[in-house]
Simulated scan of single mutants.
Amino acid sequence: MTQPAATNHTSSADLGELCARTTLDDIRHLAVIRVWPEAAELLGISKASAYRAAESGQIPTLRLGRRLLVPVPRLLAMLGDEGSPDVAAA
Rank of each mutant, 00 (worst) to 15 (best):
Q58C: 04
L18N: 14
T23S: 14
A54S: 13
W36D: 08
A6K: 14
R66Y: 02
R74Y: 00
S56W: 02
R63H: 02
N8C: 09
H29C: 00
A50H: 05
L15N: 14
S56R: 02
E41M: 11
S84P: 03
R34W: 02
T22G: 08
N8S: 14
S11C: 15
L64I: 15
S49V: 06
V72P: 14
V32A: 12
A77G: 08
D14C: 05
M78Y: 00
G83N: 11
H9I: 13
T7W: 03
Q58L: 05
L30W: 08
W36R: 04
R52V: 01
S11H: 15
V72F: 15
Y51M: 08
I45H: 05
T10H: 11
P4D: 03
I33H: 07
L79I: 07
G44L: 06
T23H: 07
L42M: 12
G65F: 01
S56P: 04
L42G: 11
I27D: 10
A90H: 10
P37W: 09
A13N: 12
K47D: 07
R28H: 06
A88F: 00
A54C: 06
C19K: 10
A89E: 14
R34S: 12
L75W: 03
S12V: 04
E38C: 14
S46Q: 10
V32Y: 15
A48P: 00
A53D: 11
